[in-house]
């Protein structure tokens, strides 16, 4: 999987490394901004009221 990505990135090794880093940062950003805020309310830490809202 990662080997496939590495082979399909353009440029020499340095450019590839930089692009991989950017890709990894983009993935982390998407996770923190969209995926985790969606997943977090499924955990029990939000249940602090007594009327089950």
């Amino acid at each position: 999987m990662y080997g496939w990505i590495w082979r399909h990135l353009p440029g020499n090794a340095w450019v590839k490394a930089l692009l991989s880093l950017l890709l990894a940062l983009a993935v982390v950003y998407v996770l923190f901004q969209y995926v985790f805020p969606w997943a977090e309310p499924l955990l029990p830490f939000n249940d602090v009221t007594v009327d089950g809202q």
């Binding site: 999987m1 990662y2 996770l31 985790f36 997943a39 977090e40």
Partner: peptide, 26 residues
């Protein structure tokens, strides 16, 4: 084998990131 192990490492990393998110980032 390589793909499966890469997937496992990826899922592990995502779980660690999620813990960081819940405990620290919130």
């Amino acid at each position: 084998v390589r793909t499966v192990s890469e997937l496992c490492v990826t899922i592990g990393t995502v779980i660690v990131l999620f813990v960081v998110y819940v405990l620290f980032w919130t």
